[in-house]
Design a protein around this nucleic acid. Structure first.
Length: 853
RNA sequence: GCUGGCGUGGUGGAAUGGUAGACACAACAGACUUAAAAUCUGUUGGCUUUCGAGCCGUGCGGGUUCAAGUCCCGCCGCCAGUACCA
């Protein structure tokens, strides 16, 4: 295959057209108020998840989603939309910093090299991006606004009454103290146990821990003072407002579960006169609580532990503290715990129940304390059996249920005043009772934790914050962007001290005992709002102008601004949740006009290696897009990625499959071009400016319709197969109507833009009837329903559901006529001979089913 | 364990409840060629066949329907996410 003869000169015309598009800024789209802006056109915003420009370059997975959005972009343009289709770089991040640690080189250098390579690769695929809007999260001009948004968070609080963020100045006006105000900011400082990775030299968000552990780094927990973002304030809205979005149900569910709302009640127990509140979703089982468990880190543990138990409790706490979360889960098979020696009073019956500590109770969820009901909770059951604690049944299972530990809804028993009530009724009654007695109340708990937002690395946005007398303060907006100083080396400090603390001059440059904050923001910062910046990427005065925001993210009745967002499932939770959170804050503060960022979301499926396994360097099954472009051209790569199967599906790569679509494109080429004696390409002699016959017209119009519908439905693979059918039909003709070929080129253009532009230009040069305008600027061909109507149609004849014959009947035949014609069929007759016809079902235009026995 | 998703030829896949396997890959046969590549044409789910055709077939078992790959119930298998969330 090394010396394959090129079946069409893609290596000549692809770079030519790419250069043409670049020079002419074909896909640049002006903003409202700019030259050439056409306000009469509706907008369509198609967004790709922007890549992290890694050293490995583009992977074949990238062009999968990018080609899909590119097809939509070109199709929408041809259908009269102003289409915003931008690209940029999520360029902060650990790999660049790891590289800097190794080489001593500033991470910016490596990042720039990688970015240049990515840009070259994307341009070689002919994507219709508006490169004028290109952004890079590490650009000072971009960092400035990321920091600006952080300050919006810093200067806001969440107003419970109005369920929205409001300016912190309102609290100042109310005369709240500094401490009270700082406690309510959406961006705040807290001392919390964090995931510290000594070899990465940074802390990680809970959500990131697994990823870096998998890469072989160690992560341990330790308490540290960190910047947090109050995402929990938005938990309910983040669930509720998923409703109006056109997202895959699986992703909505994933987010909902991640936020993890659960309804229940808080109940106050007392231990030695000390109040301990537990959270439970089953207050109806309160009479069955036979022990209590506190998280090992619970502040009350020390107080209630008896002298006898002291050393056992201390030992247990030590073991837990030493365990990472991972180890804690790995050991989850076996319950462990220690009795504190203390007892709690159950408020419903004044029973004394033992208080234990166990690592199956988390300090970070609920109140860090539970009432254990071993009869109706599997974990408590396992624990109670192991340690010989009483198990009292308080919910009677419905008839027939044999579960050893019944956790469903039933009827309350052994529960005093609750006896005989159904579980929901009992929950209601006990809640009222608790509230009346001042012993508890209904509550809602979320799994979602506040977002740990600081990192100790270098290659990220510094916080625009200074410390004065132990208090934090925002730096003035006019001082943005605040850029990190140059460092002599990028090695981790080995302590949780941030890397920027090495730059002592910078830290202290403001004098007067003022110190700069030395933490930096995580990579999420830049990626949380990049879709907004694209709308107005060069604006020096604001992250986005109101006018641009209203047009591109605009109010068209949808809650989400971006019309279509395509990317991998790996961002199903974190990125999408974080971006939604920021967007909502900006919405509350009046900076954006929609409550949600992304209206429609599509996840492309992973592309596996040819061996069916995940592509990886170590398996040697990675496909480099550059190689594919070299051998078969960009159009072939684009078309193949769309032809492999449904976009959302996981599917294996096949070089043979690439050859298949390459052959198809070669057939399209040969519809127009022929090689002469000298082996040069010349216009095909079969082309003629003739009216297409009925059959040709039918396939052409069927193709216009099917391809258009399939692009709308993002069923690209079936659209391509229709174009293959169409091409095969045209190839068979002795005389090929030029108009039909031109139509085919129009519908193929979004998929294979280079080839179609080249052929269209060649046809335009030879035939007056062909417009010399670029296809990219032309409109989508009109589809004529009449062309699909046949005089005669084929009808399937079934007897008892089995196909027995096919007949041609006039298109306009009535139901009765169709039935009569069906009964005349000899084959039908032979199958119903001697039987009684019970029923005849006629499906117009399709089939007749005769039921007989 | 829980929550999603998926099971269709040798392969990727196609089928508003209405002809299962479109389109493509691979394979085989033929044409062109000294030959190969490329290209073009044909065959290609299984079984039976008197070559007319017949029977079976969408993971397994049931059901609804004139009609089920598609809808419902119960299993089995694979993939992904998640992990003691009280």
């Amino acid at each position: 295959m090394a010396e394959r003869r090129k079946q069409f000169p893609f290596d000549e015309f692809e770079p030519k057209w790419q250069g043409h598009w670049e020079e002419n800024k074909t896909f640049s789209v002006p903003n409202p108020g700019e030259d050439g802006f056409d306000a009469s056109k509706p907008k369509y915003y198609v967004l790709d998840m922007f890549p992290y420009p890694s050293g490995a370059g583009l992977h074949v997975g990238h062009p999968e989603g990018y080609t899909a959005t590119d097809i939509i972009t070109r199709y929408k343009r041809m259908n009269g939309f102003n289409v915003l289709h931008p690209m940029g770089w999520d360029a902060f991040g650990l790999p660049a910093e790891q590289h800097a640690i190794k080489t001593g080189e500033h991470p910016r250098i490596n990042t720039e090299n990688n970015t240049n390579n990515f840009r070259r690769q994307l341009k070689s695929l002919g994507f219709a991006y508006d490169w004028e809007r290109e952004i890079n999260t590490t650009d000072p001009a971009y960092v400035k606004w990321t920091q600006w948004i952080f300050l919006q968070l810093y200067n806001s609080y969440f107003c419970e009454e109005e369920n929205k963020a409001k300016p912190i100045s309102e609290l100042e006006a109310k005369g709240l103290s500094r401490g009270e105000i700082d406690d309510r900011r959406l961006a705040y400082v807290a001392e919390t146990p964090v995931n510290w990775s000594p070899d990465l030299g940074t802390v990680l968000a809970n959500e990131e821990v697994e990823e870096w552990r998998a890469k072989g780094h160690t992560v341990e927990r330790r308490p540290l003072k960190q910047w947090m973002l109050r995402i929990t304030a938005y938990a309910q809205r983040l669930i509720d407002e998923l409703e109006g979005l056109d997202w895959p149900n699986g992703i909505k569910l994933l987010q909902t579960n991640w936020i993890g709302r659960s309804e229940g009640a808080e109940v106050d127990f007392t231990i030695d006169g000390e109040k301990v509140t537990v959270f439970t979703t089953r207050p109806d089982t309160l009479f069955g609580a036979t022990y209590m468990v506190l998280a090992p880190e619970h502040p009350l543990v020390e107080k209630i532990t008896t002298d006898v138990q002291k050393s056992a409790v201390e030992d247990y706490k030590k073991t837990c503290a030493g365990k990472s979360d991972l180890e804690r889960t790995e050991l989850a098979k076996e319950k462990s715990g220690v009795f504190t020696g203390g007892f709690a009073i159950n408020p419903v019956n004044d029973e004394k129940i033992p208080v234990w500590i166990a690592d199956y109770v988390m300090m970070s969820y609920g109140t860090g304390a539970i009432m254990a009901v071993p009869a109706h909770d599997e974990r408590d059951n396992e624990f109670a059996e192991k340690f010989g604690i009483d198990i009292i049944e308080v919910v009677q299972a419905p008839e027939g249920n044999e579960d050893k530990c019944f956790t469903g809804n039933g009827t309350a028993v052994n529960s005093g005043f609750l006896d005989g009530l159904s579980t929901p009724e009992a929950k209601e009654k006990i809640a009222v009772w608790l509230e009346e007695k001042g012993l508890g109340k209904k509550t809602i708990n979320f799994k979602l934790r506040d977002w740990l937002f600081s990192r100790q690395r270098y290659w990220g946005e510094p916080f625009p914050i200074i410390w004065r007398d132990g208090n934090h303060e925002a730096i003035p907006e006019s001082d943005l962007p605040l850029l990190a100083p140059e460092l002599k080396d990028y090695k981790p400090t080995g302590t949780p001290e941030a890397l920027l603390s090495k730059a002592t001059d910078w830290v202290n440059e403001l004098g007067d005992g003022i110190k700069r904050e030395t933490n930096t923001m995580p990579q999420w910062g830049g990626s949380c709002w990049y879709y907004l910046r694209y709308c107005d990427s060069q604006n020096p005065d604001a992250p986005i102008s109101d006018e641009a925001e209203e047009y591109w993210m605009g109010k068209n009745g949808n809650p989400g601004g971006v019309d279509l967002y395509v990317g991998g499932t790996e961002h199903a939770v974190l990125h999408l949740l974080y971006a939604r959170f920021w967007h909502k804050v900006l919405f509350d503060l009046g900076h954006v006009s929609t409550p949600e960022p992304f209206q429609k979301l599509v996840n492309q499926g992973l592309i596996m290696g040819e061996d069916g396994r995940k592509m990886s360097k170590s398996l040697g099954n990675v496909v480099n897009p550059d190689d594919v472009v070299e051998l078969y051209g960009a159009d072939s790569l684009r078309l193949y990625e769309m032809f492999m199967g449904p976009l959302e599906q996981v599917k294996p790569w096949s070089m043979k499959g690439v050859e298949g679509v390459f052959r198809f494109l070669a057939r399209v080429w040969r519809l127009v071009m022929d090689s002469n004696q000298e082996g040069e390409w010349e216009l095909s002699s079969k082309l003629a400016e003739i009216e297409p016959d009925k059959a040709t017209n039918k396939v052409i119009h069927a193709t216009i319709k099917k391809v258009g519908d399939d692009i709308d439905a993002m069923s690209f693979n079936t659209g391509i197969s229709q174009m293959m059918v169409c091409t095969n039909e045209l190839t068979k003709l002795d005389q090929i109507p030029v108009s039909s070929v031109v139509t085919l080129l129009h519908v193929l253009n979004p998929f294979a833009p280079h080839l179609t532009e080249e052929l269209n230009a060649k046809l335009a040069a030879a035939f007056d009837s062909v417009s010399a305008d670029e296809l990219a600027g032309q409109t989508w061909p009109e589809f004529n329903e009449d062309c699909l109507i046949e005089d005669e149609i084929e009808i399937v004849l079934q007897v008892n559901g089995k196909v027995r014959d096919k007949i041609m009947i006039p298109n306009e035949a009535s139901k009765e006529e169709v039935e009569a014609l069906a009964m005349e069929s000899e084959k039908v007759q032979s199958f119903i001979e001697g039987q009684t016809v019970r029923k005849v079902v006629v499906v117009p235009g399709r089939l007749v089913n005769i039921v007989a026995n």
